[in-house]
């Protein structure tokens, strides 16, 4: 029982750290900007110009 409790607590802690770690890395430290255009298909040559 104690072993199960320790296991569950450890698992919850790992999940929590993982979740908060991911969120803080993506939301608190970065600003997400985007480039959109035709990256594939017949117009892809222009998408490449934008992506560069």
């Amino acid at each position: 029982m104690l072993k199960n409790l320790i296991g569950s607590t450890a698992l919850a802690a790992v999940l929590a750290i993982g979740a908060f770690g991911t969120v803080s890395a993506a939301k608190a430290e970065d600003l997400t900007v985007a480039v959109a255009g035709p990256m594939t298909g017949e117009y892809a040559a222009f998408g490449e110009q934008l992506k560069r």
């Binding site: 430290e29 970065d30 959109a36 990256m39």
Partner: peptide
């Protein structure tokens, strides 16, 4: 140094026109 002290992360979107 990024923008407002934050680094930029780039997403690329493909619309194929």
């Amino acid at each position: 140094g990024g923008v407002l002290g934050k680094q930029l992360k780039l997403e690329i979107g493909d619309d194929q026109c």
